[in-house]
Amino acid sequence: MQRARQRVRPEPSSPSRTRPGELPTVTRSKSVGRDDLEAFRDGDPAGVRALYQTYGRLVDAVAHRVLGSHELAEEATQQTFVRAWQASDRIDVGRDPAAWLATIAKRNAIDIYRREARRPKRALDDVAADDPALVTLPPDLGALDAAWRVRRAIDELPGDEATVVRLQHLDGLTQQEIADKLGLALGTVKSRAHRAHQRLAAALGHLREAPA
Protein backbone atom coordinates (compact mmCIF):
# COMPACT_ATOMS: atom_id res chain seq x y z
CA MET A 1 0.00 0.00 0.00
CA GLN A 2 1.32 3.44 -0.87
CA ARG A 3 1.86 5.89 1.98
CA ALA A 4 4.28 8.27 0.32
CA ARG A 5 2.65 11.48 1.52
CA GLN A 6 1.80 10.31 4.98
CA ARG A 7 2.08 13.07 7.58
CA VAL A 8 -0.68 12.10 9.95
CA ARG A 9 -1.89 8.56 10.46
CA PRO A 10 -5.12 8.68 12.43
CA GLU A 11 -7.04 5.69 13.63
CA PRO A 12 -9.46 4.81 10.84
CA SER A 13 -12.98 5.94 11.56
CA SER A 14 -15.28 3.51 13.28
CA PRO A 15 -16.36 0.68 10.98
CA SER A 16 -20.00 0.69 11.89
CA ARG A 17 -22.73 3.11 12.80
CA THR A 18 -24.02 0.80 15.49
CA ARG A 19 -24.60 2.20 18.96
CA PRO A 20 -21.94 1.75 21.64
CA GLY A 21 -22.33 -1.58 23.40
CA GLU A 22 -24.21 -3.21 20.54
CA LEU A 23 -22.81 -6.54 19.44
CA PRO A 24 -21.41 -6.29 15.92
CA THR A 25 -23.41 -8.06 13.27
CA VAL A 26 -22.81 -8.58 9.58
CA THR A 27 -25.87 -8.46 7.37
CA ARG A 28 -25.88 -10.82 4.44
CA SER A 29 -26.54 -9.50 0.95
CA LYS A 30 -29.48 -10.58 -1.18
CA SER A 31 -29.10 -11.80 -4.73
CA VAL A 32 -29.91 -9.86 -7.88
CA GLY A 33 -31.57 -11.34 -10.96
CA ARG A 34 -32.29 -10.53 -14.58
CA ASP A 35 -35.58 -8.77 -13.75
CA ASP A 36 -33.83 -6.61 -11.17
CA LEU A 37 -31.15 -5.58 -13.64
CA GLU A 38 -33.71 -4.74 -16.31
CA ALA A 39 -35.64 -2.68 -13.76
CA PHE A 40 -32.42 -0.89 -12.73
CA ARG A 41 -31.67 -0.11 -16.36
CA ASP A 42 -35.16 1.41 -16.65
CA GLY A 43 -34.56 3.64 -13.60
CA ASP A 44 -37.28 1.77 -11.69
CA PRO A 45 -36.90 2.35 -7.91
CA ALA A 46 -37.46 -1.37 -7.20
CA GLY A 47 -34.56 -2.28 -9.47
CA VAL A 48 -32.28 0.33 -7.91
CA ARG A 49 -33.21 -0.94 -4.46
CA ALA A 50 -32.48 -4.54 -5.42
CA LEU A 51 -29.04 -3.65 -6.79
CA TYR A 52 -28.26 -1.53 -3.72
CA GLN A 53 -29.35 -4.28 -1.33
CA THR A 54 -27.03 -6.71 -3.07
CA TYR A 55 -24.01 -4.50 -3.64
CA GLY A 56 -24.45 -1.36 -1.51
CA ARG A 57 -22.34 -2.71 1.34
CA LEU A 58 -19.58 -3.73 -1.05
CA VAL A 59 -19.55 -0.34 -2.76
CA ASP A 60 -19.57 1.47 0.58
CA ALA A 61 -16.74 -0.71 1.91
CA VAL A 62 -14.52 -0.03 -1.10
CA ALA A 63 -15.29 3.70 -0.94
CA HIS A 64 -14.53 3.72 2.77
CA ARG A 65 -11.25 1.93 2.11
CA VAL A 66 -10.19 4.69 -0.32
CA LEU A 67 -11.66 7.73 1.40
CA GLY A 68 -11.47 6.87 5.10
CA SER A 69 -14.57 8.79 6.14
CA HIS A 70 -18.21 7.80 6.44
CA GLU A 71 -19.47 11.01 4.82
CA LEU A 72 -17.27 10.79 1.72
CA ALA A 73 -17.91 7.04 1.41
CA GLU A 74 -21.65 7.66 1.40
CA GLU A 75 -21.25 10.34 -1.26
CA ALA A 76 -19.13 7.93 -3.31
CA THR A 77 -21.68 5.15 -2.92
CA GLN A 78 -24.46 7.42 -4.12
CA GLN A 79 -22.42 8.59 -7.12
CA THR A 80 -21.43 5.04 -8.00
CA PHE A 81 -25.04 3.95 -8.41
CA VAL A 82 -25.90 7.08 -10.40
CA ARG A 83 -22.94 6.46 -12.71
CA ALA A 84 -23.85 2.80 -12.96
CA TRP A 85 -27.33 3.77 -14.11
CA GLN A 86 -25.84 6.23 -16.63
CA ALA A 87 -23.78 3.36 -18.06
CA SER A 88 -26.44 0.69 -17.63
CA ASP A 89 -27.17 0.27 -21.32
CA ARG A 90 -23.98 -1.80 -21.26
CA ILE A 91 -25.25 -4.21 -18.56
CA ASP A 92 -25.50 -7.81 -19.65
CA VAL A 93 -28.61 -8.74 -17.66
CA GLY A 94 -27.75 -12.42 -17.93
CA ARG A 95 -24.50 -12.05 -15.97
CA ASP A 96 -23.51 -11.16 -12.42
CA PRO A 97 -22.86 -7.39 -12.53
CA ALA A 98 -20.42 -7.51 -9.60
CA ALA A 99 -17.23 -6.97 -11.62
CA TRP A 100 -18.80 -4.17 -13.68
CA LEU A 101 -20.08 -2.38 -10.58
CA ALA A 102 -16.78 -2.93 -8.77
CA THR A 103 -14.92 -1.14 -11.56
CA ILE A 104 -17.27 1.86 -11.37
CA ALA A 105 -17.07 1.91 -7.55
CA LYS A 106 -13.25 1.85 -7.46
CA ARG A 107 -12.79 4.51 -10.11
CA ASN A 108 -15.44 6.74 -8.61
CA ALA A 109 -13.91 6.53 -5.13
CA ILE A 110 -10.49 7.38 -6.52
CA ASP A 111 -12.00 10.33 -8.45
CA ILE A 112 -13.45 11.69 -5.20
CA TYR A 113 -10.17 11.07 -3.42
CA ARG A 114 -8.35 13.15 -6.05
CA ARG A 115 -11.01 15.87 -5.88
CA GLU A 116 -10.60 16.11 -2.11
CA ALA A 117 -6.81 16.17 -2.45
CA ARG A 118 -7.13 19.16 -4.81
CA ARG A 119 -9.17 21.22 -2.35
CA PRO A 120 -7.41 24.38 -1.14
CA LYS A 121 -5.35 23.54 1.93
CA ARG A 122 -6.02 25.27 5.21
CA ALA A 123 -3.73 25.55 8.19
CA LEU A 124 -2.83 22.04 9.37
CA ASP A 125 -4.53 22.61 12.71
CA ASP A 126 -7.85 23.26 10.95
CA VAL A 127 -7.77 20.09 8.86
CA ALA A 128 -9.52 16.99 10.17
CA ALA A 129 -7.09 14.25 11.10
CA ASP A 130 -8.77 11.85 8.67
CA ASP A 131 -8.74 14.28 5.74
CA PRO A 132 -7.70 12.09 2.79
CA ALA A 133 -5.46 14.85 1.49
CA LEU A 134 -3.30 14.38 4.58
CA VAL A 135 -3.28 10.68 5.09
CA THR A 136 -2.39 8.41 2.19
CA LEU A 137 -2.39 7.98 -1.52
CA PRO A 138 -5.38 5.91 -2.65
CA PRO A 139 -4.84 2.14 -2.64
CA ASP A 140 -3.96 0.66 -6.01
CA LEU A 141 -6.71 -1.03 -8.00
CA GLY A 142 -5.36 -4.51 -7.17
CA ALA A 143 -5.69 -3.85 -3.45
CA LEU A 144 -9.22 -2.57 -3.99
CA ASP A 145 -10.10 -5.71 -5.94
CA ALA A 146 -8.95 -7.72 -2.93
CA ALA A 147 -10.97 -5.51 -0.57
CA TRP A 148 -14.07 -6.05 -2.71
CA ARG A 149 -13.55 -9.84 -2.78
CA VAL A 150 -12.95 -10.10 0.96
CA ARG A 151 -16.01 -8.04 1.80
CA ARG A 152 -18.14 -10.12 -0.56
CA ALA A 153 -16.86 -13.34 1.01
CA ILE A 154 -17.67 -12.00 4.48
CA ASP A 155 -21.19 -11.06 3.35
CA GLU A 156 -21.68 -14.66 2.26
CA LEU A 157 -20.64 -16.11 5.62
CA PRO A 158 -23.39 -17.14 8.06
CA GLY A 159 -23.89 -14.25 10.47
CA ASP A 160 -22.61 -16.09 13.55
CA GLU A 161 -19.38 -17.04 11.78
CA ALA A 162 -18.86 -13.50 10.44
CA THR A 163 -19.26 -12.14 13.95
CA VAL A 164 -16.51 -14.44 15.25
CA VAL A 165 -14.16 -13.46 12.41
CA ARG A 166 -14.84 -9.80 13.06
CA LEU A 167 -14.19 -10.05 16.79
CA GLN A 168 -11.02 -12.02 16.16
CA HIS A 169 -9.48 -9.89 13.40
CA LEU A 170 -10.92 -6.40 13.79
CA ASP A 171 -11.24 -6.28 17.57
CA GLY A 172 -8.22 -8.48 18.21
CA LEU A 173 -9.95 -10.72 20.76
CA THR A 174 -8.72 -14.20 21.64
CA GLN A 175 -11.08 -17.10 21.12
CA GLN A 176 -11.59 -17.32 24.89
CA GLU A 177 -12.46 -13.60 25.01
CA ILE A 178 -14.90 -14.07 22.13
CA ALA A 179 -16.51 -16.98 23.96
CA ASP A 180 -16.89 -14.84 27.08
CA LYS A 181 -18.27 -11.89 25.14
CA LEU A 182 -20.82 -13.96 23.22
CA GLY A 183 -21.66 -16.30 26.11
CA LEU A 184 -20.61 -19.35 24.10
CA ALA A 185 -18.50 -22.40 24.86
CA LEU A 186 -14.90 -22.09 23.71
CA GLY A 187 -15.34 -25.15 21.49
CA THR A 188 -18.25 -23.46 19.70
CA VAL A 189 -16.14 -20.39 18.97
CA LYS A 190 -13.28 -22.55 17.72
CA SER A 191 -15.51 -24.51 15.39
CA ARG A 192 -17.19 -21.35 14.05
CA ALA A 193 -13.80 -19.73 13.45
CA HIS A 194 -12.51 -22.86 11.73
CA ARG A 195 -15.56 -23.12 9.46
CA ALA A 196 -15.44 -19.40 8.67
CA HIS A 197 -11.79 -19.46 7.68
CA GLN A 198 -12.37 -22.52 5.52
CA ARG A 199 -15.24 -20.73 3.77
CA LEU A 200 -13.16 -17.56 3.32
CA ALA A 201 -10.24 -19.51 1.89
CA ALA A 202 -12.54 -21.35 -0.51
CA ALA A 203 -14.39 -18.20 -1.57
CA LEU A 204 -11.33 -16.06 -2.03
CA GLY A 205 -9.04 -18.43 -3.87
CA HIS A 206 -6.26 -16.33 -5.21
CA LEU A 207 -6.72 -12.73 -4.11
CA ARG A 208 -5.08 -11.25 -7.16
CA GLU A 209 -7.60 -12.75 -9.57
CA ALA A 210 -10.20 -10.48 -11.14
CA PRO A 211 -12.99 -9.47 -8.73
CA ALA A 212 -15.84 -11.97 -8.55
Binding site: P12, S13, S14, P15, S16, R17, T18, P24, V26, T27, F40, D42, G43, P45, V48, R49, Y52, Q53, G56, R57, D60, A61, V62, H64, R65, G68, H70, A73, E74, T77, Q78, F81, V82, W85, Q86, A146, A147, V150, R151, I154, V165, R166, H169, L170, G172
Partner: peptide, 27 residues
Protein backbone atom coordinates in the same frame (compact mmCIF):
# COMPACT_ATOMS: atom_id res chain seq x y z
CA UNK B 1 -8.02 -6.63 5.06
CA UNK B 2 -9.78 -8.59 7.82
CA UNK B 3 -8.27 -6.26 10.42
CA UNK B 4 -9.17 -3.07 8.52
CA UNK B 5 -12.30 -1.18 9.69
CA UNK B 6 -13.41 -0.47 6.12
CA UNK B 7 -13.84 -4.19 5.48
CA UNK B 8 -16.52 -4.31 8.15
CA UNK B 9 -18.21 -1.00 7.60
CA UNK B 10 -22.02 -1.02 7.46
CA UNK B 11 -23.68 1.83 5.59
CA UNK B 12 -26.35 3.78 7.49
CA UNK B 13 -29.90 2.52 6.94
CA UNK B 14 -31.05 5.71 5.25
CA UNK B 15 -28.37 5.50 2.53
CA UNK B 16 -30.54 3.04 0.60
CA UNK B 17 -33.29 5.63 0.13
CA UNK B 18 -30.73 8.32 -0.71
CA UNK B 19 -29.23 6.11 -3.44
CA UNK B 20 -32.59 5.03 -4.83
CA UNK B 21 -33.89 8.56 -5.20
CA UNK B 22 -30.59 9.88 -6.55
CA UNK B 23 -30.79 7.35 -9.39
CA UNK B 24 -34.50 7.99 -9.96
CA UNK B 25 -33.81 11.76 -10.03
CA UNK B 26 -30.96 11.22 -12.51
CA UNK B 27 -33.15 9.01 -14.69
Amino acid sequence: LLAHPSTWVEPPPDLEDVVVWAVVDAA
